[in-house]
Design a protein around this nucleic acid. Structure first.
Lengths: 185, 185, 185, 185
DNA sequence: GATGAATGAGCTTTCATTCAT
DNA sequence: CATGAATGAAAGCTCATTCAT
């Protein structure tokens, strides 16, 4: 309860006020608990930030896992690409401001970065399995598939407030990008 | 002179010690001037960071402009794509650690972000001019061209210390990505 | 039972971890009771420390009393001096680390200091009775007898880890000191 | 100036309010400077305490050195003993409350303890030189001479507020103690 | 312009103590 | 009696900024 309130508060402060205003005292205040309680549940400030990041990563991770499970084993290229693009967009849409803060201004600890790396690795492996026939022999191709979509969506999410590009157009264009890449030559 | 020394020092500290150690006093120390002098030339710390970021952006910007000038008006798709990819890789290679610090840990002010936006807009316009025939009617395509390459190279530069992927393989794969995208359908 | 467990725990933490680590929560943890229980039995932290100190004083005190009882009324100077020196050394040897902590880093309350003063006063009176013939008229002599031995042994106990002087040599030298003092002129 | 003010303030707070109230903020307040200035001159709190202790040690040390220089090389036992006892009493009289605080409640760093050890060692060597003929072969004797006087005077200084023993009587008794020790057998 | 001693708001963290259960 | 989550005052310390020289 209290523990969740603290993580929620930290996520909220990070999203809405940025890391500079995200002091332990502010977190406690927003969580509606005393600063002492914060340190009952977390060893230090970094541990709070890590908890926020891990929870966010978990949510994104399970969105992906679901999408991939839904695809099953025999989906055709078009379907795979579409589902993949939609999953990435959905994942970024989940909590845009928090996502931005976590990926741009917050210093994450090794532990969290490793977890994120593991997530990406798992996802790249899934892509390899799903698109194996269409990829070159190199494992770089699957990475390019993941990174191109992920990073473009990331920028779209970052900028979508002052430069609103409709989600459907983005989706269509990314699908074209991947289909082109995967069928070229 | 003094002003340049300060910006140089800030860039160096940011690159080598990270934003956490980049205090105004440390900047002054590395620049070999007094903290008082720092405030003669810059209104506050943010102004120094902004100056570093703007200078970095200018350098990258002119690297691009040169590449585009070199291309001239009648280059074929293959050439445009290759030059573009190489230019992006070269730009990120210019000062990797500073680039990483500026794009990951440093909070940039609105003013700088707008300048970066302007640079991107100019570049997208150039891409539109160079690749007009191969793009759809929408300006989104040119953005995708730019963002896919830029953001993948960005990640490559970020991760290249512990996961070294040879520059040539990256380049080849990105060229395939763009050629596929631009020739699909 | 619980009360004893708390005092034991406090003594142990004080001896082995020092006053800096001797928080009430740590005491409760080592005692195997909740922090709430600690405050059922003791009004505040100082009261715990005082209990530890008083128990230690009691033990030392009874070691002395025993030694003096053993001496009886008709012991000669040599015997009295020898027994006294041995008693002081034994007392300091009882729980060296706790003794050191209590006498060097722990702030004791008035109440405990008064008790310690009373113990010293009783001991000085015993010395006066035992050595009456060899002392001047002043009670200062008995105090010098006590303090010289007690404080030198105290330093010996404090330093004996890095500068080990054999117990026998210390004892012999202190006996010489007292015999010289008591037979001079 | 500011640096001295800080050390003075720390010494005063330590003497009059004890280590528990001797926070860095209190030191700054008493010194009449801001907390920031304290950290301009001292790396951390321990460094301030150390500076206080070292200054105190220096003063005591030079009082001793003077006394020993005054004695010259050919002083007889009576003179040496008298001057020694007076020097110890004078040293402890210098700043009783600070002395008490430094020796009882303040945790001193290794560096300071080593300096204090060096001072004691130098003094014991001087005693050996001055009293060589009257001491046994062991170096323990010179230490006993020093420690007995030093520690008894230390207690006298500690207690002299509520149990005032005249300085002359203490001096006379200590002289008897040393003369007895040094002439016995 | 240049200096750098001085400032003080605000940070992270600890720990003696309380009180509803 | 026992519990332990919760408290919050206060600690040590940092650093962007100022201003008298």
């Amino acid at each position: 309860m209290t523990c969740d309130a603290i993580v929620n508060a930290a996520a909220r402060v990070l999203s809405t006020e940025g890391i500079d205003r995200c002091s332990t005292n502010r977190i406690a205040e927003v969580a509606g608990v005393s600063i002492g309680s914060v340190y009952e549940y977390f060893e230090n400030k970094q541990a709070i930030i890590d908890a926020v990041a891990l929870r966010h990563l978990d949510r994104i991770s399970s969105m992906f896992d679901n999408a991939i499970v839904v695809l099953g084993d025999n989906a055709d290229l078009q379907t795979v690409v579409r589902v993949l693009v939609e999953a990435v967009i959905a994942a970024h849409g989940h909590d845009v401001r928090l996502h931005r803060s976590l990926s741009q201004e917050v210093p994450l600890s090794e532990h969290v970065l490793r977890k994120a790396e593991e997530f990406k690795h798992r996802t790249v492996l899934s892509i390899q399995r799903l698109l194996g026939d269409h990829l070159g022999t190199s494992d770089l191709s699957a990475q390019i598939v993941f990174d191109s979509v992920d990073s473009i969506v990331h920028r779209w999410a970052r900028d979508c407030e002052h430069k609103p590009v409709p989600r459907e157009r983005l989706s269509a264009e990314l699908i074209r990008l991947l289909e082109g890449y995967l069928t070229y030559r």
